[in-house]
């Protein structure tokens, strides 16, 4: 259990790392886009949130698999 827990934690950490990078890029690009074209900020925001959510979904998938490992 203890060992499983640690491995799962590493897995969750890796998932968070990837998701963090992805969401960071999305956020950065969105801010850039808004700075270039402030009129489109509404649309960019919506697209940003949806894209971030999709990435987050994948990350959470990793976290859940980690949890499965921790509990199993």
């Amino acid at each position: 259990m203890a060992v499983f827990g640690s491995v799962a934690a590493i897995g969750a950490g890796l998932a968070v790392l990837g998701a963090g990078m992805g969401i960071g890029r999305i956020g950065g690009s969105a801010v850039e886009g808004i700075a270039r074209n402030p009129e489109a900020s509404g649309k960019i925001q919506t697209a940003m949130i949806i894209a971030a959510a999709l990435i987050e979904g994948v990350a959470l998938f990793g976290v859940v698999v980690g949890m499965l490992g921790a509990n199993g």
Binding site: A53, L54, E56, G57, V58, L60, F61, V63, V64
Partner: peptide, 13 residues
């Protein structure tokens, strides 16, 4: 499936 996991994991987290 992603919808299910997303809501579940976000709220639980």
């Amino acid at each position: 499936f992603a919808l299910m996991i997303r809501l579940f994991a976000n709220m639980t987290a």
